[in-house]
Amino acid sequence: MNLKFTYTKLLRVIFLMLILLPTLAGFTYALLYSFGLTGLLSEGFTLKHWTETLSDFYAWKSIGFSLMIAMISVFISFWISLFLVLKLTKDFQKKWFHRLIFVPLCFPATVMALYVLQTFSKSGFFSRISYQLGFIDQIESFPELTNDAYGIGIMLTSVLMVFPFFTIYIKNIFDAEKLNEYQQLSQSLGASSLQTFWKISLPILWRKSKLTLMLYIIFVMGSYEVPLLLGRQNPQMITPRIVDKAQRFNLQDIPQAYAMALMYLGVVLILILVTSASFVQFFKRKSDA
């Protein structure tokens, strides 16, 4: 019995090591490197790299740009999913529809980005159709939808990848919360469809999916393949920027890459803390009531 207890304890320690050690080791190394305490060109403790990174306008711009793209993508995906779930509630029971909605989840980010590039770029499928239909008279006339300054291509790809998952997720909440019954009840009490949506359906779905939406904002923020294919150098999303800096031939850039990676992790942790805090508060208020 004692041996089994020791064995279990040992395995739990190994588990913690497997989960935490790689992350903490990487984190510590990055921290030391960014303070000039290790690395090929290390000259002892310095705040130079952090000062440079924190005052780097483009680093902050990248974080802001990533956050903006993630928030817009998740917001659009949420509304598309909401629309589909509320308009096509009964269709989810049909086998073909159920399978169809799962199809985009089979797409890796790389493939979806390739599709968007070949379809929405200036020489893409839709540009060619527009030319044949006479909407544009030359390739340059087609709007810049990929590798553009606003990240439209990145957002489009993110939405195409995220909305099917949200649709399935929101439909699950819809069923679990028996929203159909609430809707019928509110309408039988005289509420209009619009009132039912704003006062019943949306608040319930929003409350239940808020945390997942937040996690998806973080996931989209950290995406790499999509901005690599569909983004540009300025403004650039944060992950390609970090990788670019870390892999450049200029060794002076590496400490900044690590500082930027830590800065990004800090932003993500703040986002998580803010969300968790608001959730704790929400539940506290609920239990107080």
Binding site: I19, L20, P22, T23, A25, G26, F27, Y29, A30, L215, I218, F219, M221, G222, Y224, T239, I242, V243, A246, A257, Y258, A261, Y264, L265, V268, I272
Partner: peptide
């Protein structure tokens, strides 16, 4: 943890090791 911190960023941090 690994999902929240983005696998690519972790890749940058693990590269040295």
């Amino acid at each position: 943890l690994p999902y929240i911190l983005s696998p690519v960023v972790l890749g940058v941090l693990w590269h040295y090791f």
